[in-house]
Each structure stands twice: as structure tokens, then as C-alpha cells.
């Protein structure tokens, strides 16, 4: 085969290999707040994984000699009305909170993304059906919807996951639909169509990657919301069983002692607050890096 011999392009060609990961890390380090919030989340994950071994006391075993102790050298975060160490319960509860929120948002993200891709790519009656269904879901206040779902399915952590996942689905679907509509118009998508690519190939190879970054951002933001929702459900007695060290359940149990021993409520409250804050800060940071619309 004859080779066409001429490449006299004048433009400078950047040749150094800039991997996406390295570029991401460079920008991530500049996001000071999100960077440290990310560290905190990493720390929470370690606690969630090794909680049962780290916890200084048994989080379930009552000790009626030391009920409602204020924080001391012996019990750093004090004890609750059954004399259980609050710090140990917070540590073991980390796993519950992160587990519930991650699995529920994951389910919501997967289902929502699939619906959003279908809705945005195919349009027509499927789009109308999915979007009208989302509108109906949006019409309910999130928590009310979750309460309704748990009321139907019965209390318990698994059903909390289902409830929180269900109210996450329409938000993801709408977000991904928007991204899909934009990506569908890209010239490289048209190019793929002109080559004869099937819809499945266009969706997975060309459109889905365009939606991933905003999905990651929304995912991290959504974790905070879902921790709050799961805690609220537990607080209302619809989630974790009262004796379990779930942060929401601890708030619920402790509210009777709010006047006499406020630390029983304040400490799980702080745990929820810091975790939600950290996830939101990480989400903000990720958005600044990944969302091309908010450059600098």
C-alpha cells in the first residue's frame, strides 16, 4: 500500500502523556476543603470496616451501674440510659449508616441512570412515561414518600434502603436524561450513527461516559441526603431496631433524656452532621473539578 508522505502540520502537538487520573489528583489537591473532607470520609470508611474491633466496649451489652454517665476518661462520649458506651455505639453505627446510604444511593443511581439514558436517547412515549412518573415522585416530599414506602413494606433497614433508593431514582433519571440529551447531539455520536453503530453501542460507548462525571458528583451529594433520610426514618422508629447502634435510632432513644443528659443526643447528632457535611463538601469539590460548566 502506498504511503502518503507528507505531514507538515505546523501546529505544535503536545506529546507528554497526561493521564486523566494524574490530572484529576492535581486538581483535587487544590480543593482544600473537599480534600480534607475526603480524608474524613476515608477515615469513616476505615472505622466502618473495623468498627467491631476498634470499639472499646460492647455496643449492645447493658451495664446498669453506669447509666447516663457524662463524658469522662473512662467513657469518652459518656454512656446511654442502659449504660452502653456511646463512643462504641457511634463507631459500630458508622458501618450501618454508610452501608445503608451507599447501598440505597447505588440502587437509585443504577436504576435512575438506566431510566435516564432510555428516556433521553429514545425520547417519545418512553421519555414521557418516565418523566411523568418522575414528576409524580417529585411531587411528594422526599421523607413523606420514604415513610409511605416503609409503611407499606414494614420497618427494618432493608426497607429503608428500598425507600431511600426509590426516592433517589427520579433525581438521577432526570439528571442523566439531561446529560444524554446533550451528548446525543455531539458530532461523534452522529459519526457513530453514520458508521452504522447500533443504539446499544452508541449509548454505552459514547453517551454513558459523558454522563459519568455529573453522576459521580450527584452520587456524593446524594449520600448526605440519604444518611439524613435513613436517620430520620430510624428516629421515627421505621428504620433500624431501637436497640441497634444506628445513629438515628440513638437520637430517637436519647430524646427522653435531652434535658438531663444532652450528650446522649448531641453526640450521635454531631456524627450525623459531620458525615453529611463531609459528603456534601466532597460533592462540591468534585463538581468544581468535573463539571465543565463551573470552570474556576
Amino acid at each position: 500500500m502506498e504511503v502518503v508522505k507528507e505531514i507538515g502540520h505546523s501546529a505544535v502537538v503536545p506529546t507528554e502523556k497526561k493521564s486523566r487520573a494524574r490530572e484529576f489528583w492535581k486538581k483535587w489537591k487544590k480543593q482544600k476543603t473537599a480534600f480534607w473532607a475526603g480524608f474524613f470520609i476515608l477515615f469513616l470508611f476505615v472505622i466502618a470496616l473495623f468498627g467491631p474491633w476498634i470499639a472499646p466496649y460492647d455496643p449492645y451489652e447493658p451495664n446498669y451501674d453506669v447509666t447516663l454517665q457524662t463524658p469522662s476518661m473512662e467513657y469518652w462520649a459518656g454512656t446511654d440510659e442502659y449504660g452502653r458506651d456511646i463512643l462504641s455505639r457511634i463507631i459500630v453505627g458508622t458501618g450501618i449508616s454508610l452501608g445503608v446510604s451507599f447501598s440505597s444511593v447505588l440502587v437509585g443511581a443504577v436504576v435512575g441512570t438506566i431510566l435516564g439514558l432510555i428516556s433521553g436517547y429514545y425520547g417519545g412515549w418512553m421519555d414521557r412515561l418516565i418523566m411523568r412518573w418522575s414528576d409524580v415522585m417529585f411531587a411528594f416530599p422526599d421523607l413523606l414518600l420514604a415513610i409511605a414506602i416503609v409503611a407499606i413494606l414494614g420497618p427494618g433497614l432493608t426497607n429503608v434502603v428500598v425507600a431511600v433508593a426509590v426516592f433517589s431514582i427520579p433525581s438521577f433519571a432526570r439528571l442523566i436524561r439531561g446529560n444524554t440529551l446533550a451528548a446525543k447531539e455531539a458530532v461523534f455520536v452522529e459519526a457513530a450513527r453514520s458508521m452504522g453503530a447500533k443504539s446499544s453501542r452508541i449509548i454505552f460507548r459514547h453517551i454513558f461516559p459523558e454522563t459519568v462525571s455529573s453522576m459521580i458528583v450527584f452520587f456524593s451529594m446524594r449520600i448526605g441526603t440519604s444518611i439524613l433520610a435513613a436517620s430520620s426514618l430510624s428516629f421515627l422508629g421505621l428504620g433500624a431496631a431501637p436497640e441497634s447502634p444506628d445513629w438515628g435510632a440513638m437520637l430517637s432513644m436519647g430524646r427522653d433524656y435531652l434535658a438531663t443528659s444532652p450528650h446522649v443526643v448531641i453526640i450521635p447528632g454531631i456524627a450525623i452532621f459531620l458525615t453529611v457535611l463531609a459528603f456534601n463538601l466532597v460533592g462540591d469539590g468534585l463538581r468544581d473539578i468535573l463539571d465543565p460548566k463551573t470552570k474556576n
Binding site: V187, F188, E190, A191, S194, M195, G196, R205
Partner: peptide, 17 residues
């Protein structure tokens, strides 16, 4: 048919993923 018909696009920046 599209095996036999291919396209080159105006914008070489946008037409490559």
C-alpha cells in the same frame, strides 16, 4: 449499506470521541 458509505465531518475536534 453504511459499510459502503462513510462520512468525514466538518469539525475534526467534535467528531472524534
Amino acid at each position: 449499506v453504511r459499510k459502503q458509505v462513510q462520512m468525514v465531518f466538518q469539525d475534526p475536534y467534535a467528531s472524534l470521541n
